[in-house]
Each structure stands twice: as C-alpha cells, then as structure tokens.
Design a protein around this nucleic acid. Structure first.
Lengths: 217, 217
DNA sequence: ATTTATATGAGTACTTATACTCAGGCAGGA
DNA sequence: TCCTGCCTGAGTATAAGTACTCATATAAAT
C-alpha cells in the first residue's frame, strides 16, 4: 500500500477546499491531485485523471455530487466517490448509495472521520457518517425504489393503503383500529408490513412517508 | 500598520476552520490567535484575548454568530465581528448589521474577498459580500405571511425555533440533543414549552406543526 | 392439494414522545 | 434588589410506535 493515493476534491466553497486539502495532506501517502468548484469540471477532471478517490459536495453548480458519482459508475471509472454534505438527509444518502457512492460524510466531520472514510473506501468498504447510520440500517438491504415512491405504493394491498391514508391524517393506530373495526395489534402489524415493503424504518418514518405521499394514496 | 493582526475563528465545521486558517495565514501580517466550535466558547475566548477580528459562523451550537457579535458590542470589546454564512438571507444580514457586525461574508467567498473583508473592517469600514449588496440598496421587505401560525411562531425563542426546524427534518429528541450539545431532557422540555406556546397537544402534533411550517422557520 | 398472499390477532421488548412536576443559573428590566 | 424569561437538567408516569416472534384463517393460484 505504499503507492501514493490520488485524491480529488469538488466543492464550490474555496474555504472548504482549502480545509479539506490541508487535512488530506497531513497524511503522507495521500496527495490532492486536483480540485474543482463545479460538478461539470469535476467530472471532466475525473475522466481524464482517474483519481483514486473523489470527494464531492452535493450542492454544486452544474452537476451535483451525486450526479457526478452516477456518471463515474456509468463510465466504469475506477474512482471511489465520497459524498460530503451539509445536511444529514436520509433521501440524499439513499440516492447516493444507489448511485455507487461508497463514502458519505457530513461537513461536521472531524479530521479523523474524513481520513477514516477515505481509507475505508480505498479498501473497498463503505463508510457512512455516524449521524446517518440510523438511516442505513434498512436502506441498503432491500428495495431499490425510492426514486419513484409511487412504484412502491403500488405493491401495497388495499388494506395497507387505507391504513397509510388514515396515518397521513395523523390518526394513531388505536384510532385507525376503531375506524376499521379491527384490533390495534393488527394495525401495528400492517404498519410493520408496510414499512418493510417500502424499505423504511425508524420512528415516525412511516408517518413522514404517509404525509409526503398523501395525495397519491 | 506593521503590528500583527490577531484573528479569531468560530465555526462548528472542522474542515471550514482549517480552510479559513490556511487562507488567513497566507497573509504575513495576519495570525490566527484561536478557534472555537461553539458560540459560547467563541465569546469566552474573545473576552479574554480580545482579537482584532472575529470571524463567526451564523449557525453554531450555543450562541450563534450574530448573538456573539451583539455580546461583543455590549461588552464594548474592541474586536471587529465578521459574519460568515452559507445563506444569502436578507433577514440575517439586517439583524447582523443591527448588532454591530461590520463584515458579512458568504461561504462561497474567494480568498481575495475574505482578505479584503478583514482589511476593510480593520480600517473601520463595512464589507458586505457582493451577492448581498442588492439587499442593502433597496432595503425591501417582502416577508411576513401572518397565517396565524406565523404569529405564534414569532413568540418562540431562537432555541425553540431551532428545535422546531430540526424536528421538521424528522430528528428525534436524542438526535437534536446531540446536535445542540444539550441533554435530551432539555430538548423534551423545549418541545413541551413550544407545544404550550402554540396551543397544541397530543402525539405527533408538534411534528405535524413543524412539517407544515418548515419553510417559515 | 399444496403453496402463497392476505388479513387477522397476540406476546414481548424496546424506543420515543407527551405531560406533569421541580429546580438551579443567568441576564435584563422595573 | 427582586422579578421575569430563558435555558438548562431531572424524576416520574403514561401513551404510542417500532421490531421482532408466533399463530390462525381464508381465498386465490399453481
């Protein structure tokens, strides 16, 4: 592993680029081989220079970081894309993972986390920032939907859709049970089944889904 | 003018602090005399060390950058506060200027802009990032949609609004506590206080409110 | 006829949110 | 100085959701 690791940076904030560069250059075997402020520039550089790792901001002019990652995979370039973002947004993470991203960092990350992440993806592993790991638990296992929530909804049965609809009106399981003349345990079971079908998990995540999709239920 | 200029940095993102530090240290007469990740730490350092310039992030745990600036003026400390923020938000700029801020930079700023800004405020001048200067000229106010909820929201304190905002991103109390460096019991207390102020009660009702009003938080 | 999907119900454990209570610290105003 | 508002933290109790397990019944599909 004594070869020098080429790392590329893309972020539209000059200060951030400087900070990242400084952190990376503290590692003796790492080298910053280039930097860009837009997704388009980034992709061009990556295609021509094939760095080992590309650290990509999500919000950039032109292509965003996730789109750059997708292009990297489409063109079968041997560069590990690492996403670096301000927000701990579940949806971004999922989309990123679906597009071949193997490292996902928040800008709150410490030096150690950044270096850990780079080394992990270099070794072929996945690295997701601690704050986001709760989202990950079910996300990568099954389900490749989420690009079209509508598709996933179609796999739900009539009863399940009915429960989702009532959920979106902020009813509790007990209230739904009463309205549907079934046990509240049955409602809970349906909720779990729905969550599994949709590939979601965690507190309130089903409620959030119901709210976001209430017009197509 | 041959005295060394002491500059202090406050930002909760380690990468950003590194980047800023690097940019500032390229100037021979500038020195980074300290850095902090929270507003409270920042204020303490500024009081004790009285740097010439304090570069303050807006969104930080504890006090935010603008609050730190206000404290600096209240305590009549001879430090020039410079606000550094992600968002080109008119309201923030106004509040900042009202609180004695003489420099207002966006995180998109280039090296040159940052250095220019520091030199300008050192000379007693005002520096506002180009992207924001339009707001200064036509001091227009196109806000205030008092939808009833809007009025209630205005009675909330800054901390309460921050918690509501995080809630709207589907964070749990424990996650919010971690992000704000406070106990999750305190978060729960804030949630109860918010509910009382807004006149709402019951499971998920606060989450629902946060979701419905997330764009005006 | 066996499998499969669906609907129903329950046991158990754990996490999270709501709803009270109380209290200390700190800053600003009357 | 006292009072008030805000932030902080905790004790206790209850309600609700999540996450697994298991079981039964029925209808449709193979």
């Amino acid at each position: 592993m004594n070869k020098e690791v080429k790392i590329f940076l893309a972020d539209d904030h000059p200060i951030f680029r400087e900070g990242l560069k400084k952190i990376i250059m503290k590692e003796k075997d790492f080298r910053v081989s280039g930097a860009a402020a837009t997704g388009t520039e980034a992709l061009e550089f990556i295609i021509h220079n094939k760095p080992d790792v590309a650290i990509l901001d999500v919000s950039m002019p032109g292509l965003n970081g996730i789109e750059v990652a997708r292009k990297i995979r489409e063109k079968e370039i041997d560069t590990h894309p690492v996403i670096l973002t301000m927000y701990s947004d579940e949806e971004y993470l999922e989309t990123a993972l679906e597009n071949g991203v193997t490292g996902y960092l928040l800008k709150e990350s410490t030096h150690t986390e950044i270096i850990d992440c780079i080394r992990t993806v270099l070794n072929g592993g996945y690295y997701v920032s601690k704050e986001l790991q709760s989202f990950l638990i079910n996300g990568s296992k099954h389900k490749n939907n989420k690009t079209g929530a509508g598709k996933a909804i179609e796999t739900l049965t009539h009863t399940e859709k009915q429960i989702l609809k009532l959920l979106s009106q902020n009813r509790t399981s007990a209230q739904i049970a009463k309205e549907m003349f079934i046990s509240f345990r049955t409602v809970q079971n349906h909720r779990m089944n729905i969550s599994h079908k949709l590939g979601i998990a965690g507190h309130n995540s089903l409620l959030m889904f119901a709210l976001e999709n209430q017009e197509i239920l």
